[in-house]
């Protein structure tokens, strides 16, 4: 008991700060990844051969962007785009320095997730909307996005958790957050107790996010009687 309270006296503030940094980093990165990823996913669906505005060239190019983005390991991307990161936020360090590569890495992932969600919408609903005189924009917003909302919410939880994992890697280059703490204390100073504390926090946060995502998606889904 005493050992535990001594541990929290010494590292509690550090861990709380790291947790907060990780949440901010992950939350903002996920948000910006969706700002880019939603239009990307919608564009892929709309330009597909069976889409509302088939366009082979655009569809192929967007497909490449998505696949290239997802095929570069995050740890490499993180270092490779440092000049770009500096250009955007003025630094490659700390939380701002981590957000840029996290967004670049997650946006194609989000694009693919959004695409998958929109493709789940029954094509007959699109046809019905067209028969009532809906235009393309209305079909995208009022049918595709609206009908796939529960699936999109599940995607947000999955993305958030993936970005969470990446954000720990960003810790390796001094981005702050729990990953940074795990590396500096756990790995470099052989403090196993700090390492384990970060792991416990990460596991608990992932569980919370996934449960909240599932709950929100279920509550929102009107197909559940």
């Amino acid at each position: 008991m005493e050992a535990i309270s001594a541990f929290f006296n010494e590292y509690g503030a550090l861990l709380a700060g790291g947790t907060w940094d990780t949440i901010v980093m992950t939350g903002l990165s996920t948000l910006f990844a969706y700002v880019l990823g939603i239009p990307l996913g919608v564009a892929v669906v709309v330009t597909s051969p069976d889409g509302l505005r088939p366009n082979r060239a655009v569809h192929t190019i967007l497909g490449w962007i998505v696949n290239i983005g997802r095929s570069i390991p995050f740890i490499i991307l993180l270092v490779a785009i440092i000049p770009f990161t500096r250009l955007i936020v003025g630094t490659s360090l700390g939380v701002p320095g981590a957000i840029v590569p996290l967004v670049v890495s997650a946006a194609p992932f989000v694009g693919r997730m959004v695409e998958q969600s929109l493709l789940e919408v029954d094509a007959s609903l699109v046809e019905a909307a067209e028969s009532f005189g809906a235009n393309m924009w209305q079909i995208v917003t009022k049918v595709l996005v609206r009908e796939s909302l529960p699936s999109l919410i599940r995607g947000v939880a999955i993305t958030f958790i993936a970005v969470f994992g990446y954000s720990a890697m960003a810790g390796m280059v001094g981005a702050g957050g729990l990953g940074d703490i795990a590396i500096r204390y756990g790995y470099q100073r052989y403090q196993g107790d700090v390492m384990i504390a970060t792991i416990v926090i990460l596991v608990v946060l992932v569980q919370i996010v996934q449960s909240l995502g599932d709950l929100a998606a279920h509550k929102l889904d009107k197909r559940n009687r």
């Binding site: 029954d122 007959s124 609903l125 046809e127 019905a128 067209e130 028969s131 009532f132 005189g133 809906a134 235009n135 049918v143 609206r146 009908e147 909302l149 529960p150 929102l220 889904d221 009107k222 197909r223």
Partner: peptide
């Protein structure tokens, strides 16, 4: 395209599998 959308509004349509929007009341 826009004239066609106007025309479609004067022609109702129903479907074999109803095609109702599941997330709407």
């Amino acid at each position: 395209d826009s004239q066609l959308r106007t025309l479609r509004r004067s022609i109702g349509m129903i479907f074999q599998n109803f095609s109702l929007f599941q997330q709407r009341s």
